[in-house]
């Protein structure tokens, strides 16, 4: 019998390799995320950052290796994990309002797929709406809740998707490039809310492209370039990686 012991590690990746057809994208990745931390995934373009997150969430098939969330497979804990997608992967002309998107997160759980007219309890519906409004308030989007998502600015769209993750009340929030192309106001809202999550004991993982601000925003970092180059406290991991790159350059 396999013991599925609950562990305190929100995400542990062991010997993970991923390939698109016969093209390896990730090779033997070993990575462990600290509970309650804000962890950045950084690395050059094409390093496999998004693929690492997708493979962890079971959205891309694994070639080899294992991914555990609190010691369990993703399928056992999916509602405890929230995912904020990359902006480019969203259909912005879809007929939904900001509030509808947030409601998707608030309705996670056993019977989310039931149509409204089949949901029995009024209390359940009220609870859902309360969570939606709370999340909208936290990202300062209450007034724009009725707008179609396509009519929002890039920063507002990013806030809506963070609100969806907040409404889900997840223990682990995974974001793909949350700061890409957003205004300063949104960046401040995002960092404040993510920091609040971490202080409440939740774990935040984000793909991040700006090496200069990693140490300012995040506690830990994973430096990825098809395989793990460095991991640990953000400043140290970056220094290790720079050192490696420097040594390699000097060796040439």
């Amino acid at each position: 019998m396999i013991l599925r012991e609950e562990s305190g590690v929100p995400l542990a990746v062991t010997a993970l390799s991923v390939a698109y057809r016969d093209e390896p994208v990730l090779w033997d990745v070993n990575w462990s995320v600290r509970a309650g931390s804000m962890t950045a995934v950084v690395g050059p373009n094409g390093a496999g950052k998004t693929t690492l997150l997708s493979a962890s969430l079971g959205l891309v098939p694994r070639l080899a290796g294992d991914v555990r969330f609190w010691g369990q497979p993703f399928s056992a804990v999916r509602d405890r994990v929230a995912h904020v997608p990359q902006r480019e992967s969203v259909d912005w002309d879809f007929p939904v309002t900001a509030r509808d998107v947030v409601r998707m997160g608030a309705m996670r759980g056993a019977a989310w797929w039931l149509p409204g007219w089949l949901v029995p309890t009024r209390a359940g519906r009220r609870e859902t709406e309360r969570r939606v409004e709370d999340a909208l308030v936290r990202v300062d989007m209450t007034e724009l809740g009725a707008r179609p998502i396509g009519e929002l600015s890039g920063g507002q769209q990013q806030r809506v998707f963070l609100a969806r993750a907040l409404a889900q009340d997840a223990d682990l929030v995974i974001l793909d490039e949350p700061f890409a192309g957003v205004d300063e106001g949104t960046e401040a809202v995002l960092t404040a809310e993510l920091r609040r999550l971490a202080e409440a004991g939740r774990t935040v993982i984000a793909v991040h492209h700006d090496l200069g601000s990693v140490a300012r925003h995040f506690d830990d970092a994973l430096v990825l370039d098809r395989t793990v180059r460095a991991q640990g406290p953000a400043a140290e991991a970056l220094a290790t990686w720079r050192g490696d790159v420097g040594a390699a350059a000097a060796g040439v």
Binding site: L59, P85, M104, W113, L114
Partner: peptide, 23 residues
């Protein structure tokens, strides 16, 4: 179609998100 309208909407909006919900 009406009974399945929520999951059908979900896979139309984002099948990646739909998959993370276990659909």
């Amino acid at each position: 179609t009406l009974v399945a309208s929520k999951p059908l909407t979900a896979i139309a909006f984002s099948d990646r998100y739909a998959r993370t919900t276990g659909l």
